[in-house]
């Protein structure tokens, strides 16, 4: 009688052991972290500026631009250190859906992260209208933001936060071989036990060019770089 249960435990443990391996996306290693550093220097005032952008992401970016049509994003995941290329697969109003070659997805609305898919413990949805208005108009102020996740039981749970948006410095720099120039905008959010610092580089037209945004407790921060808008 006890054996089926123990088998279940063993199976669960074994399955989990192999499942955790599959979570990994293309590993970027050290160069990814320096891209991150360079990117953060772009969007975060006071961060240490990297001297030159690393070679690898540049090659990745160029390869992506030549092989993928339409808008392309480069995303670097702080938690895993992986860098992935995403091509746009859908556009619905201000919302753009991008997929990676291995069919994981990110969704951005006015450049603000609206959802992730296929990574596990994904950001299900985000209400970012208020902060998006401030960020894209490059103006300071406060606004609400709500991010939603499925809990372990499978029920959608909201994480409401209150965010203060402030303006940093104008910056012009090359990242992964692409020249960016715009204004630093930072967003500090607190609420539901979370403290989040997002940063954006916003063009004069109000486009988010490069950003570091918090995707959730398991994905952590993601650095987005628009390779082609």
């Amino acid at each position: 009688m006890s054996r089926p249960l123990l088998t279940a435990l063993a199976a669960a443990v074994a399955l989990s052991a192999c499942a955790s391996d599959t979570a990994g996306v293309a590993q970027g290693g050290a160069s990814a972290s320096s891209t991150l550093k360079a990117g953060l220097a772009l969007v975060m005032p006071g961060s240490e500026a990297a001297q030159t952008a690393p070679q690898n992401p540049e090659a990745l970016a160029q390869a992506a631009l030549s092989s993928v049509k339409g808008p392309v994003m480069l995303a670097t995941f702080e938690a895993s250190g992986a860098t992935m290329v995403f091509g746009m697969v859908g556009e619905n109003g201000a919302m753009r859906s991008y997929n990676s070659p291995d069919q994981r997805g990110i969704v951005l609305r006015n450049g603000m992260l609206a959802a992730t898919r296929g990574f596990g413990e994904d950001l299900m949805s985000a209400d970012t209208e208020g902060v998006a208005k401030l960020v894209t108009s490059r103006s300071a102020g406060t606004a609400e933001r709500v991010q939603r996740y499925l809990d372990g039981d499978g029920t959608e749970r909201p994480v409401p936060m209150r965010c203060a948006v402030s303006i940093g410095q104008p910056v012009s720099q090359t990242l992964s071989g692409i020249a960016y120039s715009g204004m630093q905008v930072v967003e500090h959010c607190e609420g539901s036990g979370a403290v989040v610092d997002n940063g954006y580089l916003v063009s004069t037209k109000g486009r988010v060019l490069v950003s570091s945004q918090w995707a959730g407790p398991s994905l952590g921060y993601v650095m987005f770089q628009s390779l082609r808008d």
Partner: peptide
């Protein structure tokens, strides 16, 4: 003692292909 908590899965839920988006 070995505890299985159904609310804390051993693997992150949602390792799958991203859905196709709506086409307006």
């Amino acid at each position: 003692t070995v505890a299985l908590d159904p609310r804390h899965p051993p693997a992150p839920s949602g390792l799958e292909k991203a859905p196709l988006p709506v086409r307006p």
